[in-house]
Simulated scan of single mutants.
Amino acid sequence: MPIYEYECKACGQRLEKLQKLSATPLTDCPACEAPELSRLVSAAGFRLAGGGWYETDFKSGSKKNLAADSAAAGDAKSPSNTPSPKKEGAAA
């Protein structure tokens, strides 16, 4: 349930109220009892930050880590910079 912020236009009283999304907005101020209460628009109480928090969310089966899978596939396709070993007895 979200926390809504309200302000009374008559007396300036501000309050927060935990309500369901389907609940009707409050109208009467608890301080002065005037029907001048209005809901304010405020920032969310949390923020999703950082890299990759979504990487494993909402994915199923073998699609859990797409970034690691694509990096591993890129490594397998890239040519190796190490020289191949020479066989003994081979002519140079």
Rank of each mutant, 00 (worst) to 15 (best):
Y54P: 00
P35F: 02
G89Y: 08
T56L: 02
K17T: 05
L26Q: 07
K64G: 06
E16C: 07
P35I: 02
V41W: 04
E33K: 15
P85D: 06
P30K: 04
P85L: 10
A34S: 15
T24N: 07
K77Q: 15
A44E: 09
R47P: 00
S84Y: 14
G52E: 05
A73G: 08
L40A: 03
Y54W: 07
E33Y: 11
A68K: 11
Y54I: 06
L40P: 03
S80P: 02
C11V: 08
K9F: 01
A68Y: 11
L21E: 13
A10C: 04
Y4A: 00
A71T: 11
A72C: 08
P2D: 05
Q19I: 01
G12E: 05
D69H: 12
F58N: 14
A68M: 07
A23C: 04
E7L: 01
V41H: 12
A76F: 13
C11R: 07
S80M: 06
K86I: 03
S22V: 10
R14P: 00
F46T: 09
D57A: 08
A73W: 06
A49M: 08
K77G: 15
Q13H: 15
T82N: 11
N65I: 02
A49N: 10
L18W: 03
A34K: 14
C11W: 08
L21N: 14
R39V: 10
K9A: 03
P79I: 01
K64W: 03
P85Y: 12
E16I: 04
T24Y: 06
F46P: 00
S62I: 10
P85V: 15
